[in-house]
Design a protein around this nucleic acid. Structure first.
Lengths: 316, 316
DNA sequence: ATGAAAGCGCTAACAT
DNA sequence: ATGTTAGCGCTTTCAT
């Protein structure tokens, strides 16, 4: 075929064919090819929530690596709704993608397991790891530890946590906070406020903290959106950040980086995670690995303007 | 076939088949079906920049309406790069999507025209409308007019514009600013600063304005990101918003709505635009319309906290 | 080197 | 109501 290998054809003929292709707007039919080859060289991505800027980074990492590995990428979204997610996954599977990446899926475990029976699947950023599919997560435990450590290094002792409800990684980040507080000998200072992974959730959590007689000198919020909500609550209450209260988030999303917000946070390397996910998939597709792998990527501290020493030196 | 109509089959047999389907993880092959039916009932979306939160709204509108109309949606991204966009479009076309939505494409006109020869195409949010494909845009002229009008209603006269470089809609918004200033008899007050549709671009534009002896009392930035950058510059210079200078953006993206930023802006209804795009496509696919249509959706003013009256009453 | 034929998994048309 | 057959646009195999 001229359109691919193009060997052993005279220049004259090739030119004629290429010309015809151009004039007729000919384009190979990927479905016909996929049917006979029994593979599509397409990776399917189901993103639970396109609104979350974190996933933009994940997708861009996926794209980049997939291209290197000779795959195309098709994206569907699940609208944060299990049933929509399920049909988005089904959609991709009926198209016979060669592999599936599920980014923060909220779908049931058995939906994922079922998909895994048809095609290699890697689950990104989901706490519950059913052992059958590969997974890529960030080390929420270590990240939470980093956050607490950073605050402790400034001399903070009374460090509160605003938790993230059912959000991805929220439970483990809370665990990380608790264990870090223990590790630093601050078990008595542990203080958790209820929250969610939204601006509103952070606002409410901070409001609860503001009711306390003895305010914490630092607050670790379960994600950036939540931290931004808390920031608003504190500033409305007349507190200065970081002078009166230090604040740290988690994710390092675009908003955290806005100069106007400039939130100290824990970076979750979405693009790296996306690249890893593609690697796991191609290992199964092109190198037939079969034992499941569970990748954990390291988070890192990004210091910006919302953390500093407590107003009064911690005495002893 | 049992998997679709399922008429005239005994319950017993149907159950047996359904059971077998379940056990074998059978799933219809969309490629085989597409091959024979010569249509896929899939709409392809090429989004130039997934990082921009505006597109999340567009995609969600597309999804919703597509579902109503009986279509599935597949997304690819172009990474703000013409060549990547082109291959993303090609990818979708080889899969034989029934229609194509291009969101803010930066690809060449002839690439778009070429795609339009194979399949219905609607172009979203692009200034240059080649007349062959359908388009959906927001009325940037009217939106810019709204912005100026809002500032004028507070008594502002000296209203500057920070422009948006090559960003989508930037040119027309500038035109809208100019003509609105004329309409309100403020032609002498026209003042344009160079900028871009990024935070950095807005920051620089505002810095240029700050060099002036006679500062404008209000600033209209070509988009929200740009406005946020300007906000930073003004506050760093010790100015209060809106007391010293009022600020209005364009887009109404998620960041503008953050309580901490609370930017007055012009709302561009991304979800409506997505829905319209699907409607235009299905008209061509299912009702074979052929004359091109160019939809223009109305923007609206969203008043938040960055605009107010000028510090001194405008003296006549 | 080039041509011919079979078949991928489906649907549609026709026959029973 | 059920079964049979042809063919969608490709790739692969086998023959020339």
């Amino acid at each position: 075929m001229v359109t691919r290998g193009e060997v052993g054809v005279s220049d004259e003929k090739r030119d004629a064919i290429l010309k015809a292709i151009d004039e007729l707007d000919y384009r190979p039919n990927a479905m016909a090819r996929g049917l006979v080859q029994r593979q599509t060289r397409i990776l399917g991505i189901m993103v639970s929530d396109l609104q979350n800027p974190f996933f933009a980074a994940v997708v861009s990492g996926i794209q980049e690596r997939a291209e290197e590995r000779g795959f195309r990428v098709l994206i569907t979204t699940g609208d944060r709704t299990p049933s929509v997610e399920e049909s988005a996954i089904e959609n991709l599977l009926e198209l016979r993608v060669d592999g599936l990446i599920l980014a923060s899926p909220r779908a049931d475990d058995d939906v994922i397991a079922r998909a895994g029976r048809s095609v290699p699947v890697v689950v990104l950023n989901r706490d519950t790891s059913d052992d059958t599919s590969d997974s890529v997560t960030n080390d929420n435990l270590a990240g939470a530890h980093l956050a607490v450590e950073h605050l402790v290094s400034f001399g903070h002792r009374r460090i509160a946590f605003i938790e993230g409800g059912a959000g991805a990684g929220a439970r483990i980040r809370h665990q990380g906070y608790l264990s870090a507080m223990h590790d630093f000998g601050l078990a008595d200072e542990i203080l958790t406020a209820e929250g969610r992974h939204t601006e509103e959730g952070g606002y409410r959590g901070a409001m609860d903290l503001l009711k306390l007689r003895d305010l914490p000198t630092a607050v670790f919020a379960s994600n950036d959106l939540c931290a931004i909500g808390a920031m608003n609550a504190f500033e409305e209450a007349g507190l200065s950040i970081p002078e009166d209260v230090s604040l740290i988030g988690y994710d390092n999303n675009r908003m955290a980086a806005l100069r106007h917000i400039s939130l100290t946070t824990i970076d979750q390397p979405g693009d790296d995670m996306g690249r890893s996910a593609v690697d796991r998939l191609t290992e199964r597709i092109d190198e037939d690995r079969t034992e499941p792998r569970h990748d954990v990527v390291a988070p890192s501290l990004v210091v910006r303007s919302t953390t500093g020493p407590p107003r009064f030196e911690a005495k002893s």
